[in-house]
């Protein structure tokens, strides 16, 4: 274990903008963790994510200071295709990250770019399709797929490159609640089974806080809070930085007693009943 993603006093300002998108940001993610990045629109979340896989500064020019380290490599001096082996990136809209006419060909895309041998690609593609339960879609055209299936195809296209870190930018915001839950559970499973480190941005905190190990809240380009989800969500002033904690957390904050927060309804009910029973 150790720090796999580390931001040290990191500032980035896109060329032509008047103020930095992120400023003096320091935080780190341990290997094997699920870290949730939260904050209102425009707080700098996307900039942070794109600084992990090198889209910033390699694709977007701008003024930069401080340092971002990913799996021991300094992002600013590592080419994006090198980072592509370490960091899988899932974007919000799966439609715009599926390029090819069939599912399996699209999943193979990254490995072809890296110049792997055809037999190796075949094996890895089959593995990734199986892992995400979409082997039966291999020959299908992306335009025939549902939104949830498209998101799985895009995920397979990232995982096939065997990354250590998976970065997800609001992966469920266009999905309905059940499909969103499926994607989140899948990501949680990948984290447990493959030991994949996950960094994700998601507005629906009730969906992701139960599975997160760490939460980083950004406000006005800076880190506003960092800690375990229970710690962070327990703070005052979340609404002011544009976050809405899950309803169950809001309820607990209004109760007299309470040491530590339960992050889902079941956990809360169990604790509450035990607590009440204890006092009888």
């Amino acid at each position: 274990m150790g720090k796999i993603v580390e931001f040290l006093d990191y500032t980035f300002e896109y060329s032509g903008m008047e103020r930095p998108a992120v400023e003096g940001v320091s935080f780190s993610v341990e290997e094997g963790e699920v870290a949730v990045l939260a904050g209102a629109s425009g707080s700098g979340k996307s900039t942070i994510l794109r600084s992990i896989n090198g889209l910033i500064p390699h694709m977007y020019p701008g003024r930069r200071s401080g340092k971002v380290t990913v799996d021991g490599a300094d992002v600013s001096s590592t080419p994006t295709y090198e980072l592509a082996r370490k960091v899988g990136f899932l974007f919000q809209n799966p439609e715009n990250q599926i390029f090819m006419f069939t599912v399996e060909k699209d999943v193979a895309f990254g490995l072809e770019n890296l110049g792997y041998e055809p037999e190796v690609i075949r094996r890895k593609v089959d593995w990734a399709l199986g892992l995400l339960g979409i082997s039966d879609l291999a020959k299908r055209s992306p335009s025939e797929l549902s939104d949830g299936q498209k998101q799985r195809v895009a995920l397979a296209g990232s995982l096939v490159m065997d990354p250590k870190i998976l970065v997800l930018d609001e992966p469920t915001s266009l999905l309905d609640p059940r499909t969103a839950q499926d994607v989140v559970s899948l990501v949680s499973r990948l984290n447990k089974d493959l030991g994949l480190t996950v960094v994700l941005v998601e507005h629906r905190l009730e969906l992701v806080s139960p599975m997160a190990d760490r939460m980083v809240v950004l406000s006005g380009s800076r880190v506003w809070a960092e800690g375990s989800p229970a710690e962070v969500l327990g703070r005052e002033g979340l609404h002011e930085v544009g976050l809405s904690p899950p309803a169950i957390v809001e309820v607990q904050k209004r109760l007299p007693s309470g040491d530590g927060l339960a992050l889902d309804v079941d956990g809360f009910v169990r604790r509450f009943l035990a607590d009440v029973g204890h006092r009888v």
């Binding site: 896989n53 080419p79 994006t80 974007f91 990254g110 770019n113 110049g115 055809p118 690609i121």
Partner: peptide, 15 residues
């Protein structure tokens, strides 16, 4: 962005 994130252009002759 998605092309870049999947190593487009890493080698001159992709397989």
């Amino acid at each position: 962005e998605a092309m870049e994130a999947r190593g487009y252009g890493a080698v001159s002759r992709p397989t």
